[in-house]
Design a protein around this nucleic acid. Sequence first.
DNA 1: TTATTAAAGGATAATAATTATCTTTTAAGC
DNA 2: GCTTAAAAGATAATTATTATCCTTTAATAA
Lengths: 134, 134
Amino acid sequence: MNSELLLREHDLKVTPQRLGILSLMKIRGHVDVEELFLAMKKQFASISLATLYKNVNAMLEKQLITEIKAPNFKAKYEIVKEPHIHLLCKECNEFVDLDINLETLIDDASKKSNYQLEESCVVLSGLCEKCQTK
Amino acid sequence: MNSELLLREHDLKVTPQRLGILSLMKIRGHVDVEELFLAMKKQFASISLATLYKNVNAMLEKQLITEIKAPNFKAKYEIVKEPHIHLLCKECNEFVDLDINLETLIDDASKKSNYQLEESCVVLSGLCEKCQTK
DNA sequence: TTATTAAAGGATAATAATTATCTTTTAAGC
DNA sequence: GCTTAAAAGATAATTATTATCCTTTAATAA
């Protein structure tokens, strides 16, 4: 989906900086604030870290993006999609998404616990295919 | 399991501070460093925050405890057990464990992705039974 | 278009969380 | 009881994040 529309639908003003952030997230998938800062500086020489934090927080509040936190890693952000699994390779430090449907798991958990569950943060970590053979 | 043995088995020196930390984790389940600090000060008036951070890190390295990170929360720690689900209530901010076996999920994820998976951090959040009716 | 205005951006200070450093104390093995 | 390496405690340093304040800009309506 077009980033401009995405912003408008979430009641966020369209700015070049925000379009840049979304574009990076679309290309890279999972990004942290520092990565974002370094990449954004190439397009917006004078961008401030504060702007990135403010925008990330605004997009989180409007549920346009989600935060993924995992042991030993800085918070990562990605554009919202269906509940899914994040795979993390401890060797190359890459995050990727795995599209296994988590509905069943969430439903089971909900029934067993009587919780009304809304969000998931599922990170499985280990070694990716490449790093296993090193 | 007895905390003294637990420490020895993980090649960690037995100290009163460490026994205190484990005791608190056993009683409370999920704790963060600040909680730990406040609670420990009652037993060890002069305990230093640095001691807590150092011990938590040492126990993490030796895999005696694990770290649970979730959006909007400070890192929580608990004694290692089988892979399981953490439920988080956004209203009362309580973490609890749910014993649903995650083996199948992890195996599926492993097969689909060819990752060699070792660790899981699974947090589902929403409203607990009590907080739904408020 | 242009004028208006609330919101966003940028610079930087302040705060919070965590790690590093150094000295003193203590657990573990002889 | 000694000895010694590791742990504790105090505190400085670092890192991550938020707050503040002033300037600039996107959205809207004349």
